[in-house]
């Protein structure tokens, strides 16, 4: 009896006796049919009640999407102001003669700037030197950062400190240290961020040490060039190491345990588990490295652009170079994507 009372308390609108329950179901059915007849245009609505609910949800969703859009506004306005409009202006520059007096004026010049670029031997040389650097640096940075990430992923004492050390260059390179390095060694390079320029001690020490070993001058030269390259690579791979490390940590230990049970060697484990698991990150890292190398203000092409702007005030030509350069970078990144898409192994998703 007590239970029945409880049930009734929960549904006060319903009638008390249990015998009424089947009646109620019957009652609903004709109602449904009636609703269908009335709203014959909307087939999907099962009942009047749920239709009301749906209308309410529609307006709720509209409200949601309105609020969502409002939230993106600050960033969008910032983007328009400091990215989109400047980019449009820059395209306009690249297509015209830019004349500077108190104000500036642009005059359409029939792709003159673009045709100039390809007659410009300096640009082509700078472009090929930048590409040369890229072709060497990207594979070395990738292999190096994956290797270091695998090392840093092992359990050992002092791992936290080691990780911090490998991330430090990311914090330091853009900072004032590089300025000071360069300022101390070379006045003209104060505003450049080239690491190898700055670390004079490495080159000097190396010359000294190698010289004292009695090696020839040519060999010493090679050794120094290599050590400079190592510096470049090591100092440019902070972010890549972090990305690889993160990917390594997300691999399920169960996979390795299964390997251990089957008696796989460390070599097999690396190529059959680790490598496929981090392959999506390899693509991310390739793209990151390419963009990073291309947008480094000290590379040959961007130095040329800088010189065009600051010394000859040839804005039109500079803008045209930048856009051609960007287009080439996009083509390269697109090609990398197409090649890597086939090779990447996606576990889930």
């Amino acid at each position: 009896m007590a239970e029945a009372v409880n049930n009734d308390a929960l549904n006060p609108a319903e009638e008390n006796s249990e015998a009424n329950a089947p009646k109620k179901v019957k009652k609903i059915k004709p109602e449904k049919v009636k609703a269908k007849k009335e709203k014959s245009t909307k087939k999907s609505e099962p009942s009047d009640n749920s239709k009301k609910k749906n209308r309410k949800r529609m307006s709720y969703e509209r409200k949601q999407s309105f609020v969502g859009f409002m939230f993106t506004l600050p960033w969008l306005i910032g983007f328009l102001m400091f990215f989109f409009i400047p980019a449009i202006k820059s395209i306009n520059f690249s297509l015209s003669d830019v004349k500077i007096f108190e104000d500036y004026a642009t005059e359409w010049n029939n792709f003159q700037n673009y045709s100039n670029i390809f007659k410009d031997a300096t640009f082509l040389r700078n472009l090929s030197s930048t590409f040369g650097d890229l072709a060497i640096n990207v594979p070395i940075i990738l292999v190096f950062s994956l290797f270091v990430a695998v090392l840093l992923n092992r359990k050992f004492i002092g791992r936290g400190i080691a990780r911090a050390v490998f991330f430090l260059p990311v914090i330091v390179t853009t900072g004032v240290v590089m300025t000071a390095f360069n300022g101390a060694s070379d006045t003209s390079a104060v505003f450049e961020g080239d690491v190898s320029n700055g670390i004079m001690f490495s080159t000097m020490n190396a010359t000294e040490v190698l010289g004292s070993l009695g090696l020839g001058e040519q060999i010493t030269g090679y050794m120094i060039a290599i050590s400079d390259r190592i510096f470049d690579v090591v100092w440019d791979s902070g972010i890549q190491i972090i990305l690889f490390l993160a990917a390594l940590q997300s691999i399920s230990p169960a996979l390795y345990e299964a390997c251990d049970v089957e008696g796989a060697t460390a070599w097999e484990k690396f190529w059959l588990i680790t490598f496929p698991s981090v392959s999506p990150i390899i693509l991310v890292n390739i793209v990151y490295t390419i963009v990073d190398t291309f947008s480094d203000p000290s590379n040959a092409v961007l130095s040329q652009v800088d010189a065009l702007v600051t010394t000859t005030f040839n804005y039109g030509n500079a803008a045209a170079i930048v856009w051609v350069y960007f287009a080439i970078v996009l083509v390269i990144i697109g090609a990398v994507f197409l090649v890597c898409k086939r090779l990447i192994f996606y576990s889930v998703d």
């Binding site: 949601q64 969502g68 400091f82 820059s90 520059f93 963009v291 961007l302 960007f326 996009l330």
Partner: peptide, 29 residues
């Protein structure tokens, strides 16, 4: 976490602008 028209476009814009380096737009900015 929200659905609104143009959401995909905005996200694509975000991703694409990651490819640019800010320095080259200094004069128009």
């Amino acid at each position: 976490k929200n659905n609104f028209p143009g959401k995909k476009l905005i996200f694509n814009v975000v991703v694409w602008s990651l490819l640019f380096s800010g320095g080259v737009l200094e004069i128009p900015v």
